[in-house]
């Protein structure tokens, strides 16, 4: 227990953050280099104004026809992504760790809010799982990897919820919570989770094409 704790909060944590940061930088850099070499047109047509216009529309709930046609998915996906982003960064227990290790701190979420948001993430994952299994068009596209990703994302929140509420065995679960969070970090650069970084670029590019060249909206 003690050595496990020391490992997951020490070397493994460093490794996870380093892989996350440098893995992401590496993927970005290699994509950028490849784009420079092979997709010169992308840079030619990229337009900040239209990119932001498109991103703005797609970051607004029900800002596109696609979202209006799928209201449940829209509500879930917005709540999910907001919670997924806010909870790990702003929950008190994590801010304390930043303070302990790097002497930096910031705004924290009230426990009740973090708790609800955690539940939102867990329920959203259940919803996504249901979609994957139940809707034929989603099932057809689904690979084993998609289920694994869902698990990778849900695990830190399930274990975090468990540890916070001190359900039986929470001490061991806390360690699993830490590991699962680190696995998620490591997974980001090398899996579909990387979409968090590519979104502004894919969206921005089609927004630039539609806005600047095609003179049409893309939402």
């Amino acid at each position: 227990m003690y050595s496990h704790y020391e490992f997951v909060t020490g070397p493994f944590a460093w490794m996870a953050f380093l892989i996350f940061i440098f893995g992401s930088i590496y993927r970005f850099y290699s994509l950028y280099k490849l784009a420079r070499k092979k997709d010169g047109a992308v840079f030619e047509y990229m337009d900040l104004k239209f990119a932001l216009r498109s991103i703005g529309h797609w970051l607004t709930p029900f800002g596109s026809r696609s979202m209006k046609l799928n209201p449940s998915m829209t509500v879930v996906t917005f709540l999910f992504h907001i919670s997924l982003f806010l909870v790990p960064i702003f929950v008190f227990g994590h801010v304390v760790l930043w303070k302990e290790n790097f002497d930096i701190s910031w705004f924290t979420l009230p426990n009740i809010v973090a708790d609800i948001m955690t539940l939102i993430v867990i329920c959203s994952c259940a919803f996504f799982l249901w979609r994957r299994i139940k809707l034929p068009e989603v099932r057809y596209l689904t690979t084993v990897g998609d289920y694994v990703i869902l698990l990778i994302v849900a695990a830190p929140f399930i274990t975090g919820f468990w540890a916070y509420h001190q359900f039986p065995g929470f001490a061991a679960i806390t360690i699993i919570h830490i590991i699962s969070g680190e696995i998620m970090l490591i997974a980001i650069p090398f899996t579909k989770l990387f979409h968090m970084f590519t979104f502004p670029f894919t969206r921005g590019y089609i927004g630039s094409e539609f806005g600047g060249i095609r003179m049409a909206k893309d939402w």
């Binding site: 994509l31 950028y32 490849l34 784009a35 070499k37 092979k38 997709d39 992308v42 696609s66 046609l69 799928n70 998915m73 809707l135 034929p136 068009e137 989603v138 057809y140 596209l141 689904t142 690979t143 998609d146 579909k192 990387f194 979409h195 590519t198 979104f199 670029f201 894919t202 590019y205």
Partner: peptide, 30 residues
């Protein structure tokens, strides 16, 4: 091909939201 294709294929999270955009899908009874 280059980064564009790579990013497109890697970014797709298999959510099937595009289905609604396709008249083939809609016409072929989903």
């Amino acid at each position: 091909t280059g980064a564009k294709l790579k990013v497109y294929v890697d970014t797709c999270v298999h959510c099937a939201m595009c289905s609604e955009g396709c008249h083939f899908f809609l016409s072929m009874d989903r």
